[in-house]
């Protein structure tokens, strides 16, 4: 139950962060619908964000484990 809630809040947070960042970067002048260019940008942007999230996760976990002196 708790595990599921964490997993859910984790996914929700990720969706919210991607939406905010990619809306900001891709939808410069919102029109009456998403254009093909908008959708292509959102697709690229989401991919990059997920990739970034994977890289940062691995790196931060590694650093937390190896270096207990670090404060954040």
């Amino acid at each position: 139950q708790i595990l599921q809630e964490i997993a859910l809040s984790n996914a929700t947070e990720l969706i919210s962060k991607i939406s905010n960042n990619c809306y900001e970067k891709c939808i410069l002048t919102p029109g009456s619908s998403l254009s093909a260019a908008d959708t292509a940008c959102l697709d690229q942007c989401s991919e990059k964000y997920i990739q970034a999230w994977n890289i940062i996760s691995r790196r931060y976990l590694a650093r937390v484990q190896s270096d207990s002196k670090g404060l954040a």
């Binding site: 969706i15 939406s19 990619c22 809306y23 939808i27 919102p30 908008d38 989401s46």
Partner: peptide, 12 residues
């Protein structure tokens, strides 16, 4: 468009 973006991301 923000809500469209949100739906796009959820599907992705």
């Amino acid at each position: 468009r923000f809500l469209d973006t949100n739906i796009f991301v959820v599907n992705k």
